[in-house]
Design a protein around this nucleic acid. Structure first.
Length: 937
RNA sequence: GGGCCGUUAGCUCAGCUGGUUAGAGCGCAUGCUUGAUAAGCAUGAGGUCCCUGGUUCGAUCCCAGGACGGCCCA
């Protein structure tokens, strides 16, 4: 009976109602949102509206168009999107042009593999290029779909692509600019070379196989002058006094497994910090690293006597004689010198090793290359000319033995690089390549100076960046491959010299702009010859095209020239944001090209995001199967939960990702979602004309508004400092404080008052304010959910703002200092409410509260009127002012059983039965019910 | 092996220039609610602030060394 009556009254309440589902179903729902944004051109239209709001540009570092997007890339891309949206909601012209890096070896390999082509020389270059383009576009489409699926905003229909003719023209024009400044030269470089296939190889074309090599220890003996200098540094004082004549000849001992590289030796590398010993052995003295001496000197170590020592760096720039050739071998320093094998003194032939080459460049050593493409010694090798290099090994060892330079010889089985196609051992061989001169025109120094004008997050990135420039080797720009942008150099057919003439290069740029870079393969050379062009070396007039392509790091290094400074985008960009590996990669390549060509950094702010590791903090790896595909993750959990995850971690640090982490952030997501849902469900009956202005709101509602303003201002402040995680914490804190205090307080007024009651409309108006401001604040992170909620508001309430991305933070006029007293009062209410809620008997409406507080607090609380009782969720409240001391202002807090009985409708304890028709409910409720049923009392 | 970075509750993170009973959210436990209900509220238990030294009246915070983890390079 009673049950029935109660149920009747339940029907007279204004209970929450909304179509905004409690279950998110993100994987299912999100694609509809994307479609809606696309149809409504939400991003483009907001961009247009912001045209006069000042521009803010995040320049996209181009991902490589190969493979699907993994979680590391997801993290980076979603963070970029958050910053773009923050600027957008801030009224900025935040144009984001996504880009792709589409040339290069990985795609060329993949394509060749796809085509089943073994030797890239055997396929027509234009055909190969066409297939590579297809492949690159295939990956671009996939990656683009994945980026769009993340909810990212940007001009995805018009991305920049390094394969576009206009982009290729930019690359080539950049080369022309550099050639103009004499910044580019042709020089030698050590590359992997297969003497069987007569071609350069890339790292990826190498397979390691076991190979038996000669293992020899060789003396490099000093002449008299060299010996004197070495002893000067190494010999102990006492020994020197007794006369160095007793020491005998002095040699540096080296170890090698490639005797054929000795003719190209020009130096011996020592480790700067290592200690080298001078060992007297029989009638001579040899120098080896002390820690390696027992191993290096072999059975002669027992009779060896340490008579001197020096740190490697003290021997820098001394010299010894080459054991085979009539020249010196200089002692140099190198960090890579291995202290596990050999002698700690490394035979250095810059023509035959990558490290050796770098050291050679650093010391300005000659790059000897006495080996031709087929692996035979040239005349430069003197007595060995004409010999095949591996056949020369025993000959060289014999010569060393004969002239007394051989310390010991053995055989050695080790893992050695072989050609993946013909399985012959490969060699390092110096070949002519185009270089960007790092020190020409003080480029390196200017680049280092340019770093000072850039902001770095984290700040230590600046140091990292500086080191990367300081240690930047000469930049090898050329590659002997097919899938890329040509370096339009000419070869004089008369003297065989290569020419990179700016006029030629600019002709090529113009040609590529209209026809694409394929033209370099299809055009006759005449197309690229300026009038009256002659070879600067010999005056010749006949030329051939040189078939080199440019390093793809150069291509991505000029994206700022291709994308910025046009179409409303400013140069330099305001922000670049990439993983930490890009200090050596794109941050560096962009900086070098920008400083060389425009004299300053191409960005104002460099931000680095952390690496995404698995849940144990280990790197994710495809081979271990611990990598997670972004598309899979979005299909499983939805993009918004993953976006919230990206906001919940410290973006600068390395972060962890996995199912357990997602589950946790998923619970936070559900909290946020439910609180949004609560607000929406109480706005169902609110029309625009019902909304009351701030000044007409009840005090508690005005307070909630103020707290919301403070929240939005704080979140905006965090966004402005690029501290997404800080914003995340504030968002979580805000929705939980709103839910715990305010929503609970509003339930009674919202549910039990008459629909159009002023108290109720005030509460709803405040809720509308809280909700809309909250949605704007979270939209950069929870883009899908914020938009879904926005669309769940009635069109009338949305007003002119069709999308949540049409709204604005709108906090410029707010003064955070003005919030202090409101926030303090809010916290006082929270503390009081917590004391009520903690009580079990009587609890909430079962209670009446006698509250005695200090005069100061009394004044603040009294200002709330009956809203104070609502906020504390009690049936009656007696507020008194007292004089005692109390740190929190509360002198007495007495919860007593409420007066009256529980109203069957509003659940407050009131005097019941004033309306005989409704004996179980209070007078206020009876009035509402009567109004509903149309009967006067 | 080198350069750089990190290490605070089970998890994600706060802790401003050295002095706090070291905090929050999630999870967990307990209680309440059943008119946000595959929701909501309250309370509580969880920490030798990686380790070892040093500076200091006093260090999670400064310095040195080490351990573990990561990125880049070798």
């Amino acid at each position: 009976m009673n049950q029935g009556t109660t149920m009747d009254y339940r029907d007279t309440l204004n209970l929450p109602k909304t179509a905004f589902a409690m279950r998110a179903d993100l994987p299912k729902r999100e694609p509809d949102r994307i479609e809606w944004w696309r149809e409504h051109r939400t991003y483009e239209r907001r961009l247009q509206r912001n045209a006069s709001g000042g521009s803010w540009t995040l320049h996209d570092g181009p991902p490589y168009a190969n493979g699907d997007v993994h979680m590391g890339t997801f993290f980076n891309m979603v963070l970029k999107d958050m910053f773009v949206k923050i600027a957008l909601l801030d009224g900025k012209f935040a144009k984001f042009v996504p880009g792709w890096d589409m040339h290069g070896l990985p795609i060329e390999y993949e394509t060749l593999k796809h085509l089943g082509v073994q030797d890239f020389h055997s396929i027509d270059p234009l055909e190969l290029r066409a297939k590579c383009k297809e492949r690159a576009l295939y990956w671009l489409d996939r990656q683009r779909a994945q980026r769009i699926r993340m909810g990212n905003f940007g001009l995805f229909e018009h991305p920049y692509r390094t394969i576009d003719p206009s982009f290729e023209a930019t690359i080539v024009n950049a080369l022309a600019d550099l050639a103009d400044r004499q910044q580019i030269y042709k020089g030698l470089r050590s590359t992997l070379w297969c003497i069987h296939d007569e071609t350069a190889l890339a790292e990826a074309e190498i397979e390691y196989e076991q190979r038996l090599s000669p293992s020899i220890y060789v003396r490099f003996t000093a002449n008299d002058e060299q010996r004197r200098r070495i002893l000067n540094v190494m010999l102990r004082q006492a020994q020197e006094d007794t006369g160095s004549g007793a020491v005998g000849p002095v040699s540096v001992l080296i170890w090698t497994t490639t005797p054929w590289t000795l003719p190209a030796n020009v130096a011996i590398a020592l480790r700067p910090g290592a200690s080298y010993g001078l060992y007297q052995v029989g009638g001579e003295a040899v120098i080896v690293a002390e820690s390696l001496a027992p191993h290096a000197l072999g059975d002669r170590f027992a009779q060896a006597k340490l008579i001197g020592r020096a740190r490697g760096d003290r021997l820098d720039n001394l010299a010894v004689r080459h054991p085979l050739m009539d020249r010196d071998s200089v002692i140099v320093l190198a960090d890579y010198v291995d202290m596990e094998t050999g002698t700690g003194a490394v035979h250095t032939a810059p023509g035959h090793g990558a490290d050796d080459f770098d050291t050679g460049m650093k010391y300005g050593l000659p790059i000897l290359n006495p080996v031709d493409a087929t692996g035979h010694f040239t005349a430069e090798a003197g007595p060995y000319a004409g010999l095949q290099i591996f056949a020369a090994n025993p000959v060289i060892v014999d010569d060393l033995r004969r002239n007394g330079a051989l310390w010991s010889a053995a055989e050695y089985e080790h893992s050695y690089p072989h050609c993946w196609r013909c399985h012959n051992p490969v060699i390092f061989r110096a070949t002519a390549q185009w270089f960007l001169a790092m020190d020409q025109n003080l480029l390196r120094q200017h680049a280092i100076d340019a770093i000072d004008a850039v902001e770095y997050t984290p700040e230590w990135g600046r140091v990292r960046q500086r080191q990367m420039i300081e240690t930047h080797p000469e930049w090898c720009l050329s590659r002997q491959r097919t899938w890329g942008t040509p370096i339009p150099a000419l070869i004089c057919t008369a003297c065989n010299e290569s020419v990179l003439d700016p006029r030629v290069v600019r002709l090529a740029a113009r040609r590529f702009a209209e026809a694409g870079a394929n033209a370099w393969w299809s055009d006759p050379v005449e197309v690229y010859l300026p009038e009256k062009f002659v070879c600067p070396s010999c005056g010749g007039t006949a030329f051939a095209k040189e078939m080199n392509i440019v390093d793809i790091w150069f291509e991505s290094g000029v994206t700022h020239l291709a994308v910025l400074g046009r179409d409303g985008l400013a140069w330099p960009s305001d922000l670049v944001l990439e993983g930490g590996d890009q200090f050596r990669g794109w941050f560096r390549s962009s900086l070098v090209t920008a400083v060389a060509i425009k004299g300053r950094a191409p960005y104002r702010h460099v931000m680095k995001n952390g690496w995404v590791n698995d849940e144990q903090g280990r790197p994710m790896s495809k081979s271990l199967g611990t990598g997670i595909d972004a598309a899979d993750a979005m299909a499983k959990w939805g993009a918004d939960v993953l976006r919230l995850w990206a906001a919940s971690v410290e973006l600068v640090d390395d972060v962890r990702f996995g199912p357990h982490v997602v589950e946790q952030v998923g619970r936070v997501y559900r909290n946020v979602r439910n609180r949004i849902r609560f607000m929406l469900s109480n706005l169902d009956d609110l029309g625009p004309s019902d909304v009351v202005a701030r000044d007409e709101m009840e005090p508690l509602d005005r307070l909630a508004r103020a707290v919301t303003d403070a929240f939005v201002a704080e979140v905006k402040g965090a966004y402005d400092r690029f501290e997404i995680h800080d914003a995340y914490l504030r968002i979580v804190d805000f929705e939980s404080t709103m839910s715990g205090l305010y929503f609970d307080a509003l339930k009674d007024p919202l549910y039990s008052r008459a629909i159009g009651d002023a108290r109720r409309r005030s509460a709803q108006s405040a809720l509308l304010y809280v909700l809309t401001r909250f949605l704007t604040a979270v939209a950069p992170v929870l883009s899908f959910t914020a938009e879904e909620a926005w669309q769940s508001l009635s069109e009338a309430l949305r007003g002119d703002d069709e999308s949540v991305f049409d709204t604005a933070f709108n906090v410029a006029h707010l003064r955070p200092s003005a919030f202090a007293s409101d926030l303090a009062l809010w916290e006082e209410l929270r503390a009081l409410r917590a004391r009520v809620a903690a009580s079990e008997d009587p609890r909430d409406f079962e209670a009446q509260l006698r509250l005695t507080v200090t005069p100061g607090l009394h004044k603040r609380l009294a200002g709330l009127g009956d809203n104070l009782r609502e906020a504390l969720v009690v049936s009656q409240l007696e507020l008194r002012s007292g004089e005692a001391d109390a740190s929190d202002g509360v002198i007495a807090f007495e919860l007593l059983p409420a007066q009256g009985a529980k109203c069957a409708r509003c659940w407050k304890y009131r005097e019941l039965g004033t309306d005989p028709q409704h004996p179980q409910i209070c007078a206020d409720c009876a009035a509402v019910v009567r109004a509903l049923t149309g009967r006067a009392p």
